[in-house]
């Protein structure tokens, strides 16, 4: 029901804007700006203002915590040079590692999810491997692949693998038997059942895993770059530490926060598009201002 009222409202809005086309564009833009939800910005902006105040009052040394105005100057300086290269390098590593890791996880997760004897063979080993922290692999990866790109990407792929694998596995196992029975009623063979019922039904689980895997991929890119890299956000961090420049470190941290948020929001957007059929609490409150 909510869907149909929504669509109806959308139509009505389209009609009114169409009627006011000549002046509508400007007022439409203003309305969109006004409708932006800025409540999420209150905490970070407030924290920055307080920080600036503390440093200006001399309560905190600028060598410990540079004031936001200094950070801005550093940012402008970096923005002309290495910042974008570093961001690009890290983002590319995350993208490639995450793509490899999650694709492999989707393949393995489907097999283990669908095939009970594969679970008997593989699941105990996976559980043991999962218990090993990602960073413990770093020395071995460096011995095997050197300190170049390969070891970083393997580390990122490995971090992204487990959340995606686990969520898909449990997603397939939790598919409502009643829906599968509908397919069985039509004598549909297993591949058809998988494609038409099991995959769509486990998509919500899979997306949760993909988003978590993506956040772990960002985590490991920093770890990998902190250890050995000549570019990337993790390199900026270690550079800042070596030069005793907290402003560099802080800029890198802010970049990570922003990049993580952007990539997660992009994913959320895809998820909402793919899963608009869901009738859950989160979709029910999604359209309503809280």
């Amino acid at each position: 029901m909510t869907l149909s009222t929504h669509e109806f409202r959308g139509e009505a809005q389209d009609k009114t804007t169409a009627l006011r086309r000549p002046v509508g564009t400007v007022s439409g833009f203003a309305a969109r700006i006004a409708s932006l939800d800025l409540r999420g910005a209150i905490v970070p902006v407030g924290a920055l203002a307080l920080l600036e105040l503390f440093v200006r009052m001399g309560w905190v040394s600028p060598y410990v915590l540079p004031p936001p105005s200094d950070l801005y100057t550093t940012f402008l300086y970096l923005a002309e040079g290495p910042l974008w290269t570093n961001i690009g390098a890290s983002a590319l590593r995350v993208l490639i590692g995450f793509a490899f890791g999650s694709l492999l996880a989707i393949v393995v997760g489907s097999i283990v999810g669908l095939w009970y004897s594969a679970e008997r063979y593989l699941e105990p080993s996976f559980q043991a491997l999962r218990a090993v922290p990602s960073l413990a692999w770093v020395p071995l990866l460096m011995i095997w692949f050197g300190i170049g790109e390969t070891s970083k990407i393997v580390l990122i792929a490995k971090s992204a693998f487990f959340p995606v694998y686990l969520s898909l596995f449990s997603g397939i196992r939790n598919v409502d038997r009643k829906l599968v029975e509908v397919g069985e009623m039509y004598r549909q063979p297993l591949p058809v059942l998988v494609w038409r019922i099991l995959i769509p039904a486990s998509l919500p689980h899979l997306f949760t895993g993909l988003r978590y895997g993506l956040s772990l991929a960002w985590l490991s890119v920093v770890a990998a770059e902190l250890l050995a890299a000549s570019e990337g956000i993790g390199y900026m961090l270690s550079d800042g530490r070596e030069l005793s420049r907290p402003d560099l470190v802080l800029i890198a941290i802010i970049c990570l926060a922003i990049l993580g948020k952007i990539s997660d929001s992009l994913f959320k957007l895809i998820e909402d598009r793919c899963l608009s059929w869901r009738d859950s609490y989160s979709t029910a409150i999604g359209g309503r201002p809280a």
């Binding site: 009643k178 829906l179 029975e181 509908v182 009623m185 039509y186 004598r187 058809v192 038409r196 019922i197 769509p200 039904a201 998509l203 059929w277 869901r278 009738d279």
Partner: peptide, 27 residues
């Protein structure tokens, strides 16, 4: 198959529209 089943619950695929659910046998 010459036999069709109507279950106690509708058991519709939530990701398919009404038309797609009705034609589910043929995908």
């Amino acid at each position: 198959p010459p036999v069709a089943f109507v279950f106690q619950e509708p058991r519709l695929m939530p990701w398919l529209t009404v038309a797609q659910n009705i034609g589910f046998a043929d995908g």
